[in-house]
Design a protein around this nucleic acid. Structure first.
Lengths: 188, 188
DNA sequence: GTCTATACAGTGATAGAC
DNA sequence: GTCTATCACTGTATAGAC
């Protein structure tokens, strides 16, 4: 979208990075301007709705960025490899537990109500994708769904605890736990 | 501490409530002043260090508020009842999943580095208390500790996902999962 | 499209009267 | 101890030149 420096893709990447590291309330237009290299005016040219619109578009951008992972997971026939692919991409997305989650940052913001619908859609899509992995492994719908929800819960929680304790090992152990439990056969 | 209206205990309660609902960055001195009924000057009279000091003292206040629970859990002889007591108090603290966690809010703030040591101590204390429950049930130190960490991770994550999806059922299910798995005998 | 300049409310924080 | 008034600054957001 800008003729000159950055593509819209790159701009959204940098905005996302800013929101993730500073939080939505903590990211000022000054930081956003600095990180993107765009003046405040240019920022408003692209996002007339201000910070709120930026966050909304960043959410959509993240959703698009996640699509290839979800697609690859859906197309991979082997359940075990579905899960490995998902966990690998998640580990990369959060830089091994060092990077915060955009969804959490927005869910904790003062404008959270404005993001409600988008956040819900993102969480549901994510849990849905994890549910699909369990289903492919032969789990019942209810168990697959319950475990998927638990997996997403652990990932979000691990990021918090890792940040709070300064120990990214928490995140690694959470992923390991998911790896060894998500597809475990149901007891009967 | 104030001769007139509110005790320091009550002031800290209200500050905590403000930080939890608005986030650290989202809670302005104006809101803090309104919620406590204290003018900004009075606020600075009690907390010369400003917002940062308020958050630090609120953390200490929370720690004191949690002490009775931890003590009761430690003194209760039956492991099962230890756990039930802990989960009951946690459920109350977070209002069944409707209230955010102060630790998360501070860990996500722009001033997070200033809270680092206190946050780490709080998380460690919490995980330690949960570990004690597992130990009392005969679990090995390593398993008890791993499960305790996982429990705290789930609680934090469930609060995020519950807020993001608008479904407090997530929180209830997370507590249920902890109730049924934390003390499970180790496989051999 | 991007720049400089700026409006104006709100921010954290302080001073001094009472 | 609390008030009113105010500080310097940053916040989001716009206007208008180029």
């Amino acid at each position: 979208m800008p003729a000159p420096l950055l593509s819209k893709h790159e701009v959204l990447d940098r905005l996302m990075e800013s929101f993730r590291s500073h939080g939505y309330d903590g990211a000022s237009l000054a930081t956003l301007s600095e990180r993107t290299g765009l003046g405040k005016s240019s920022l408003y040219h692209y996002f007339p709705g201000g910070k709120e619109q930026m966050a909304l578009e960043v959410l959509a951008h993240l959703s698009e960025g996640l699509a290839p992972t979800f697609r690859a997971v859906a197309e991979e026939p082997d359940p075990r490899r579905k899960l490995d692919r998902m966990l690998k991409d998640i580990n990369a997305l959060y830089a091994g537990g060092k990077q915060a989650c955009l969804l959490e940052r927005l869910a904790a913001s003062v404008d959270r109500e404005r993001f409600g619908a988008s956040l819900r859609a993102m969480f549901d899509g994510w849990i849905g994708a994890m549910t699909g992995i369990g289903r492919a492994a032969g789990l019942s719908a209810s168990v697959a769904r319950r475990r998927a929800e638990s997996a997403v819960v652990r990932i979000e929680g691990a990021l918090i605890v890792a940040a709070g304790t300064g120990d990214v090992g928490v995140f690694r152990r959470a992923l390991d736990e998911i790896r060894t439990t998500l597809l475990r056969p149901e007891a009967r």
